[in-house]
Amino acid sequence: MSEATMRELEVAVWRGGDSGGFVTYRVPERADQTVLDVVTFIQRRIDPTLAYRYSCRVGMCGSCAMTVNGRPRWTCRTHVATVAKGGRLSLAPLANMPVIRDLVADMTEFFDKWRRAKGRFVPAKESPKGFARVPPADPKRRAADAGIECINCGICYAACDVVRWNPDYLGPAALNRAWTLYNDVRDGDRLGHLLAVAGDAGCHACHSHQNCMEFCPKGLNPTASIAGLKRAVAGAYLKGEL
């Protein structure tokens, strides 16, 4: 074994619930190692009681997000080499959510807010005559496309200051979803989507700090989606549609 592969990382991992604390583990450093690899090593080789969440390991499912060195990240696609300062890692569950145990945050509220933001497609009352023709270059379709790749990882929600300050705030992910649906011309209740996100718990509470955009692993810009919602809601209000 070469000297490079024998080096160790010092990994502080959150253990316990909301009132838990950090426990430090030593994990061998490897080339091209991801943060998820490190967590898996600890769980399989050092302490099998460590709780954490992951599924696809390729950045599709959105289940492995954690707080890595103080910042929310998807751990399966975060290389240790890019984040470990001086061989040190600190891993905690996502912020702005209750801790279930160790690295597992309770995402119930996060998903409940998707529902409250009416983050689901509403079919039209009458069955469509043939396929809906949606030109890819249509401005509405482009706006929807820009936000559609969300994987529900909760990183934007954990990074958002307004979520921390206003417990009712729906959060960037749910609002971004509402924006994509509002721009879906096939949706049967586009005004209903606006009504669900208007107000102090919705788009109007956003301060445009852009943490969601900064940390979104998919490179989306929920702040822009929320700004779009603000404009659309204000427009609907002025037209007397709200």
């Binding site: 009504l195 107000g199 102090d200 919705g202 109007h204 204000a234 209000y237 002025l238 709200l242």
Partner: peptide
């Protein structure tokens, strides 16, 4: 506050 009033407040 209703969504409508909140929108008015935001506009104001």
């Amino acid at each position: 506050m209703s969504a409508k009033t909140e929108t008015l407040v935001w506009l104001a």
